[in-house]
């Protein structure tokens, strides 16, 4: 996903302005000559100046090139599904793991991503279960990371 640099510059400029406004709202601290807003102010000015230069450079180059160029992989249905599976799979894990538990959500997310990669059903299910079991063993049993149990809490060990 390649955006035109004029657009990149605009987004960065807006971020810089937001940071600038925010840094001006930071209070001066009593007895301190340099409050918490000084350094953010410097960063925002630097970022803003660079963003303007980037836009100027893109405009000077004559607006050539498309506004947004999507890579061939992402234009194909398979590539798009695969990327969405990775991103939305992680989001689904975030939203559901506390309620359903690691041992339920992790295999589901893995199967979804495997399927987006055209791994056959039997292999996808087998590897998802095995991978989840191994990672759960390493992190929960060996390293004592409190992975959520969710619905399976009565079965927890």
């Amino acid at each position: 996903m390649r955006f035109h640099d004029a657009f990149n510059g605009l987004v960065l400029l807006l971020a810089a302005i937001a940071l600038l406004v925010y840094s001006l709202t930071l209070p001066a601290m009593q007895g301190q000559q340099f409050g918490p807003g000084v350094f953010p102010l410097m960063v925002s000015v630097g970022l803003g100046a660079c963003a303007l230069l980037l836009m100027a450079r893109a405009v000077a180059a004559g607006w050539s090139g498309p506004f947004v160029a999507v890579d061939a992989g992402l234009r194909s249905r398979r590539g798009l599904t695969a990327v969405l599976a990775v991103v939305l799979g992680t989001v689904a894990y975030l939203l559901l793991s506390d309620f359903l538990g690691f041992l339920v959500v992790a295999p589901l997310v893995l199967v979804a991503i495997f399927r987006s990669q055209r791994v056959g059903w039997p292999a996808a299910i087998a590897v998802a279960l095995l991978g989840t079991a191994v990672i759960h063993f390493v992190f929960y049993s060996m390293l004592r990371v409190p992975l959520p149990w969710g619905l399976l809490t009565p079965l927890a060990w």
Binding site: F102, L110, I113, A123, V127, G131
Partner: peptide
């Protein structure tokens, strides 16, 4: 890699949580 990469993702998720 289509088997390995998703497993690495799960590893990342658990690692970032840990």
């Amino acid at each position: 890699r289509n088997i390995m990469m998703p497993i690495i993702l799960l590893f990342c998720i658990v690692g970032a949580f840990a």
